[in-house]
Amino acid sequence: MSSSAESRERILSRLYNAQQYGRDAYVPQKKVWTIRNRPKEKNITEFMERMGAVRTEVYRTKGTEWVAELQKLVEERGQKTLLHAPSTPTGKVLAEKWKKKSPCKLVTWKDSIEEFKDDLFACDGAVTGCIGGIAESAAVILWPTEEEPRLMSIVPPLHVVVVEADKIYTSFQDAIKKLKWNTSMPTNALLISGPSKTADIELILQFGVHGPTDLVVFITE
């Protein structure tokens, strides 16, 4: 086996050589895809419509009303546990407003994944915040943190996301600009547009393959 460093030298030298063509070749000027920003209400409408089209349940709520709605929803579905992060604003509201006698218990992530793995895979659902939404392509943007780790939004069968109405951007382009994505890239950044799905059997769309079978989004203002 040739060492990685030797390979690197050889690959790069071949590429620099090849650039005799590359550099001199005519390279058309890069075109840019831009989308004009729209007013907030239009963004919200488009966001709701497009998210709904990929079987995401989207609700628009005022203030902290979403907690009660969520409680009703999970109780109807017979959920037993709901993972949340009490140190985040979303988790804090949830913990405060959650009725203690609810059959669905709130649980928190303890320690690192190595210790928490079994519990995590046993959770029925998880609630996270997010740093924004995108209307044009219909997705929520998650930058998982220490409080809300990456696996919260993929392992439990139900994922609930709370997004602030003011943070729904018109386009992915706008979100990248506003969030200064190029300078503040986190360890993991995600766009999530719906429940996990596949079309590998006869191209029939089926929901809930590896990730959540249900995605619920609350827009709050």
């Binding site: 943190t145 360890t187 993991n188 950044a189 766009l191 996990s196």
Partner: peptide
């Protein structure tokens, strides 16, 4: 599709204090 279910950008291993990855 206009967008896939997940767009996953990974920029490194688990950092100190992060709890998964």
């Amino acid at each position: 599709q206009r967008i896939t279910t997940y767009f996953n950008m990974i920029s490194g291993p688990r950092k100190k204090d992060e709890r998964d990855g």
